[in-house]
Computed example of a mutant assay.
Amino acid sequence: MANEATERAPGCSAQLVGFDFASKREFALGVGELEAAFERQNFVWIDVTFSDVDATRAWLTELGLISDDVIDEALTREAATQLSRYDQYLHFVVSECHLVGRALELERIDCVVAARFLLTIHRHGASCLDAVRKNYPQDFQRFAKTPSFLIYELWDQLAESYILVQRALEERVDELRIRLVQRADDEAFNRVAELGSDLLNFRKVLLPARTVLQDLGTRRSLFLSSTTQPFLMNLVGTVEHVQQELLVDRDILAGALELQMSLVAHRTNKVMRKLTVVSMIFLPLTFLCGVYGMNFRNLPELEWRHGYALFWFTAGAIAVLVGWLCRRAKLW
Rank of each mutant, 00 (worst) to 15 (best):
A5F: 12
T6H: 07
R8G: 04
R8Q: 13
P10K: 00
A22Q: 10
S23G: 06
S23E: 14
R25S: 10
F27M: 07
F27S: 07
A37F: 09
A37E: 05
F38R: 08
E39C: 11
N42Q: 09
V44E: 05
W45E: 10
D47C: 11
S51Q: 15
D52M: 07
W59T: 08
L60T: 09
L60Q: 11
T61F: 05
E62N: 12
E62Q: 15
L63W: 12
I66R: 02
I66T: 06
I66H: 08
S67Y: 09
D68Q: 10
V70S: 11
V70H: 04
I71E: 03
E73F: 14
A74T: 06
A74V: 08
R77I: 07
L83H: 07
R85C: 03
D87W: 11
L90W: 10
H91N: 14
F92G: 04
F92R: 00
V94W: 07
E96F: 03
V100N: 14
V100A: 14
G101K: 11
G101D: 15
R102W: 04
L106N: 09
E107Q: 12
D110Q: 01
V112D: 06
V113E: 02
A115H: 15
F117L: 04
I121W: 07
H122Y: 10
G125K: 11
A126V: 09
A126L: 11
R133G: 01
Q138G: 10
F140G: 06
R142A: 10
P147C: 07
P147V: 08
L150I: 09
Y152F: 14
E153G: 06
Q157H: 12
L158P: 02
A159Q: 01
S161Y: 03
Y162L: 12
L169A: 04
L169Q: 06
E175K: 11
E175R: 13
R179N: 06
R179T: 13
Q182G: 03
D186N: 13
A188R: 01
A188L: 03
F189N: 02
N190S: 15
A193N: 10
G196Q: 11
D198G: 06
D198K: 03
L199A: 02
K204W: 04
P208D: 08
A209C: 09
A209R: 04
V212K: 05
L216K: 00
G217M: 07
R220L: 14
R220V: 08
L224V: 11
S226F: 01
Q229C: 08
V236P: 06
T238N: 07
V242H: 11
V242N: 14
R250K: 14
L253G: 13
L257I: 04
L257Y: 11
E258C: 06
S262A: 15
V264C: 03
H266G: 05
R267L: 05
R267V: 01
K270Q: 15
K274D: 10
K274Q: 08
L275S: 08
V278T: 01
M280F: 14
I281K: 09
L283D: 02
F287Q: 02
L288Y: 04
G290I: 05
M294D: 00
R297K: 13
L299G: 00
L299A: 00
H306D: 01
G307P: 00
Y308I: 04
A309Y: 09
W312G: 01
I318Q: 01
L321H: 05
V322K: 05
W332A: 13
